[in-house]
Design a protein around this nucleic acid. Structure first.
Lengths: 350, 350
DNA sequence: CTGAAAGCGCTTACAG
DNA sequence: CTGAAAGCGCTTACAG
């Protein structure tokens, strides 16, 4: 029987279920039954075992347990990023998702492994094959077309995964995403209702970034309802960062096309754009109405506060985890589109 | 010998090192040697094994390996938070640390478990005793006094851990933190150099939050060099959020004490405070100079851009991981204080 | 309700 | 340089 030593920094002797068994006067198998919550244990026996567990501060060895059950009780969160690996700054929207996913995992009793991935990494197999995780959560903006092939491979291999992103009918595997088209539409309708007709769009507007593209098309649809349309000269590519938003707004101004509103594909872009607009002497919202997307915490504290489209990251994180767990459990699951809603603040001049 | 099946979503048969051994015509032990990089393997044999590994897309079972070696190859990142568990919003400063820690782990070939913890949780033992992780990284503002006892328990148990935070001489275990006192001092000296003497401080200033307190005391030291001092009426408690910063600035205004500068204990507080100052018709920096702390990405895009004290989160993440790994490896390690530096932007009126 | 025993898939002395 | 074998700490049929 091993003993506990408190010898300063030296590691204590490892306590196993056998130690508990000896102490409680039962077999090791019974200890395991108690710890797994088996109903086939006498109440008095159970109590003795639980006492011993507490006294020795015993914890089940995760690896032995997982090796035996072939279940790790762990999910892996893979964050894709553009190839700027030296930057520590992750898109706050995703970080917010990381937060809600972490919490959802805790609630479900799952551990969460987290890792950044480059598109070039061999991530498609590693986590599940090595038993590190029972399933994967995929998160990240970026070029879909570039990694659709990898998703297909995951499906072919039978890997369990869910991804956050646009729900496209031909997308391999399950997706949970925001209703970007409708989000764009309500942003557009809001601006249209305020009399704006020349709406610039800052963000990628192509099938390489389907989420932004849907937001763009939604806004376009709103404009078309009143006989207008998004104009090519007023669309400038940008990824989701303040820097890109700043640069895109500068580019927009340099092009010289007239515009009375900016719909930014994300709040970060909007924040950068507002800075550029201010630098150019334009007033928000008097001269230019600005609407963002995401409703990051900072949106309430920009100057002026930012009107934006809210994405429910809390719900999204929960759904991602729940759906993945159901899939792992062999249940039927399906893609989900979450509704978007408008949050009106001062930047749109409403 | 197991075989790979691609039957739609069904799980493939698990491939083990025995399958590789058969295919390569060697013993299972040799497969293991190759995979562990043992030098005791013939080059030709090694090649055959590696080919088989590639062809069958084999990955070592992590749990079997860890069970045998008693090493998990995993670190756990525990984030402490105040008891508002329903909020998905984590302090962006910590999220930035999460980013750099995640990257540092990847570089070191370590997996990273992440978890939010409440002070009430029984986190002090779980991760290491269950072999889930070889060591812990502790992250989180919050009340030190409240969890010093837990740190002592960790040390007594021989758990390997490092924490981010103030390096206090009587703190149990290792800490890596920013030079908060000097950070506060350079912020104060900057403001003093601009002729400001009545500096308000927004943030906790007591031993319950030693980091903020050090920043406060550093600023006070700068003021004392010119015969001034921080005034009690100009100090308002705030935790690190825009909401708290906003509320604290309102409180400050309501108190009616004269001030010509605000030193916010964090950028988030500064952002909230600038909003409150603007609402009150005060101009930054003309009427009130504002300095923050952290240098979050958003600091460049506030209006006006925020003068702040830079903390090197990238380096911090690396040091946290490296130090922990050394500790796990049995090497001698020590606490580290990272330098702070001033980033001058418009909000201070320099 | 409980125990003895097999086995999950590795790693690593040990023997050759 | 390589193989046979023990064993890491659990879980779970199987037998009672």
């Amino acid at each position: 029987m091993s003993q506990v030593h408190y010898l300063g920094r030296s590691k204590k002797t490892k306590i196993t279920s056998l130690d508990i068994a000896h102490r409680a006067g039962v077999s090791q198998a019974t200890v395991s039954r108690v710890l797994r919550g088996s109903p086939l244990v006498n109440a008095e026996t159970r109590r003795r075992v639980e006492d011993a567990v507490r006294e020795l501060n015993y914890k089940v060895d995760r690896h032995a347990s997982s090796l035996r059950t072939q279940r790790s009780g762990t999910l892996a969160l893979l964050l894709f990023e553009d190839p700027t690996p030296d930057e520590s700054h992750i898109n706050p929207f995703f970080l917010s998702m990381v937060g809600s996913i972490t919490r959802a995992c805790a609630r479900e009793g799952q551990d969460l492994l987290i890792s950044f991935q480059q598109l070039s990494d061999d991530w498609h197999a590693d986590y599940e094959d090595s038993m590190k995780a029972d399933g994967l959560i995929l998160l990240g903006y970026g070029d879909y077309l570039a990694y659709t092939g990898k998703l297909e491979k995951l499906v072919a291999q039978g890997t369990r995964f869910v991804r956050w992103g646009a729900v496209l009918h031909d997308q391999p595997g399950l997706s949970i995403g925001c209703d970007n088209f409708n989000g764009g539409r309500i942003a557009g309708e809001h601006l249209v209702g305020l009399g704006r007709r020349r709406i610039a769009f800052l963000g990628g507007a192509s099938s390489h970034c389907p989420e932004f593209f849907d937001r763009f098309r939604g806004c376009d649809a709103a404009l078309r309802e009143v006989g207008g349309a998004m104009e090519a000269i007023l669309q400038v590519d940008a990824e989701s960062s303040e820097e890109d938003g700043f640069a895109a707004a500068r580019e927009l101004l340099a092009r010289g096309g007239a515009f009375d509103a900016v719909f930014a594909a994300s709040d970060l872009i909007a924040v950068g754009a507002m800075r550029a607009l201010a630098d150019a002497g334009l007033r928000v919202p008097e001269d230019i109405a600005v609407v963002g997307f995401d409703d990051l915490p900072m949106a309430r504290f920009t100057s002026p506060p930012l009107t934006t489209v809210f994405q429910d990251t809390k719900r999204a994180g929960e759904l991602l985890v729940e759906t993945l767990l159901r899939q792992i459990g062999g249940e039927q699951t399906q893609s989900i589109t979450l509704p978007a809603s408008l949050v009106v603040r001062k930047s749109s001049g409403a």
